[in-house]
Design a protein around this nucleic acid. Structure first.
Lengths: 203, 203
DNA sequence: TACTAATTCTAATGCGAGTTAGAATCTAAC
DNA sequence: GTTAGATTCTAACTCGCATTAGAATTAGTA
């Protein structure tokens, strides 16, 4: 019991500042990009000096890796949540709407993390890039399965390439992180329009 | 006449290396981002040393500004070309297809320049950002006009927000620069699918 | 060949970045 | 209050960057 107290209490404090550092890092990475953001800025935003960061993270790259990991996790989890709300044998239409709602909600409610992934994709040190690749691949696999289902259920017209369709949907969804301002339309109304346009578009 | 020779001949040589430098810069900016690309790398790719760049460009920022300018110009020109092929009183359907073809062709045939714009959007020094803003605004204005036409001609359903629709189309088009590999599908077949999906989608 | 201008190189400057080691401070249990 | 451990700070170090001035080289003209 004593041991437990000794280990959980300080680790809570430590996790707290780790959390703050990650949030601030995600915020600045998403706005200025990875290279343009200095550890000094991140540390200052969290109320400390640059050197102190190294007590929590091994390097700037390690920080970025964790931000990217969380970002993909946010999206993946949020989509999974929406899927679980459906019946076991859901239709392609219902599935697509759930995917769109999950993906869009994640992007627009955790803009700092997800925008970091979307924006910095492709222009990061290869070591960082490799680390996030596996998780993203797994998520995209789920989209592929959804599209295959649409094809098999005959909802996707024969003359359409389902891979390209997937990229069209993901492209327009991801792009929302570029222009979305929370003051405008509600996420729900966005979901409705995205779903409606793409469903009508592929039938 | 002599004066003409004296001025055109060397300026041709000079313009040539300027061109090479811009091309290489666009290439590296699009792949690694603005901050992660050093003048040393750009110069090396053009077969010279970093210091020599300053004979052609005032600064790294000036280089970037010109790359961005050209990028938007490419897209804008290419779209204008497609529009000119149409009748004077073209329909929304024809207009949309021309816009999509122009935009996509520009993106996929000058990927270095256009990807630089798309990727680095938002994470550049504000001075650089401001310079490209005007041209881009003018181009987006043309899209707004197209969408308005679609609404007035009744092709865009009443329940759709035409501003959001514009962002959906531009998003999925721009995203193609992230995944497109020239070895895959032809640009024409992409144009067909984009047009078909969005036209069916908004009717 | 000699002269001139255009173009590139060399070498140096200053700055800010990421990183590190050790000192300083804070926290909490005895 | 003392002590031990956790956390942060200070002050340095190294490195690569953009930038610059002047020397060196090239190329074209007479």
């Amino acid at each position: 019991m004593n041991a437990k107290v000794n280990k959980t209490k300080p680790s809570l404090k430590k996790d707290k500042t780790r959390e703050v550092l990650l949030d601030k890092a995600a915020q600045m990475f998403s706005r200025q990009g990875y290279q343009s953001t200095s550890l000094k800025e991140i540390a200052a935003a969290a109320g400390m000096k640059a050197g102190s960061l190294y007590y929590h993270f091994a390097s700037k790259e390690a920080l970025m890796v964790e931000v990217l990991d969380r970002s993909i996790q946010f999206i993946s989890d949020r989509v999974a949540e929406e899927i679980e709300k459906l019946d076991d044998e859901y239709s392609f239409e219902a599935g697509l709407k759930a995917f769109i709602r999950g993906h869009l909600t994640a992007i627009l409610t955790h803009p700092d993390y997800t925008t970091t992934t979307i924006r910095n994709n492709g222009q990061l040190p290869t070591s960082v890039q490799a680390s996030a690749h596996a998780k993203r691949e797994h998520y995209e696999q789920q989209w592929r399965r959804l599209m295959k289902q649409g094809r098999e259920q005959g909802v996707i017209r024969a003359d359409l390439d389902e891979h390209l369709l997937r990229l069209m949907v993901l492209g327009s969804l991801n792009w929302s992180s570029v222009w979305y301002k929370p003051c405008g339309k509600s996420i729900d109304s966005l979901v409705e329009q995205y779903t409606s346009v793409f469903l009508n578009g592929c039938r």
